[in-house]
Write a protein that binds this DNA or RNA. Structure first.
Lengths: 131, 131
DNA sequence: TTATGTGCAAAATATTTGCTTTCCG
DNA sequence: CGGAAAGCAAATATTTTGCACATAA
């Protein structure tokens, strides 16, 4: 799939950073990673490319509670679970739940469905110590 | 459940605004609504109270892709289904789906979970005529 | 009375945008 | 060469915070 009309070093590096991690990075985090390889890269370039890639379906912009946009290099349908205490975001694979939702909506006459599932709570670590 | 140690007019108005709507309002939107009743209310007060209420479980802070924090006055698990063609938004009550998701996450060690489900597709009307 | 909460404004964050320069095709 | 993309900085959100004053309990 095409990102834009040109292949630049910056664009390539940004995509690789997003794909290489399993966390759901913010633009700032991606910027810091890319800067290790291309020190003079600008934050604006990172923002512009993340926005472009998510509009083109190369990556996902995922819902988050942190007040920052978060991205995901895995574009296969899945959900997320986030921790209110430490901001960690994990992928969630519960096909049974997705299917129950999807088929109920199809029974109601809806078509071409995309399912977005966002759980939030306290992750195992934060549930233990009452931080 | 208690919000804070005092019941003020502002706090009450903010909570009512969030509970009265079915959309997931941003702080700015809540501020504009509250200002119709209390013109001199400050944005800082709205932010402080929304933050307090969501930490206390009175309302939910829901994950969003907009880069703004979004809230929800309905703390029972629920979802929405929206139509990409006509922008209609319906409530979605599929307890079986929510429970499958919730119990899977609890098995993984997460606690105090809230479940947010957003489906989008083409509603029955728009699926019929290819608008 | 007094500690909590509010208003106001400034500071801190996060994101977007305008404009010039760079460089891919 | 020509236009798309990068760099840089200024402009815009968005959210948080400090402090003086107000007020519920």
């Amino acid at each position: 799939m095409e990102i834009g009309s040109r292949r630049t070093r910056q664009r390539q590096a940004i995509l690789e950073v997003v794909r290489r991690t399993t966390c759901h990075p913010s633009a700032q985090w991606v910027y810091e990673q890319v800067r290790q390889e291309i020190p003079h890269v600008s934050l604006g370039t990172v923002y512009r490319n993340l926005e472009l890639m998510s509009r083109n379906g190369i990556i996902l912009q995922v819902p988050a509670i942190s007040g920052q946009a978060r991205y995901d290099g895995d574009v296969s349908g899945h959900g997320h679970i986030s921790c209110r205490a430490c901001d960690r975001i994990d992928d969630l694979f519960i096909e049974a739940g997705y299917e129950a939702l999807r088929s109920a909506a199809e029974d109601a006459g809806f078509r071409e469905l995309t399912v977005l599932v966002e759980l939030s709570g306290r992750c195992p670590d934060c549930a233990k110590n009452g931080s």
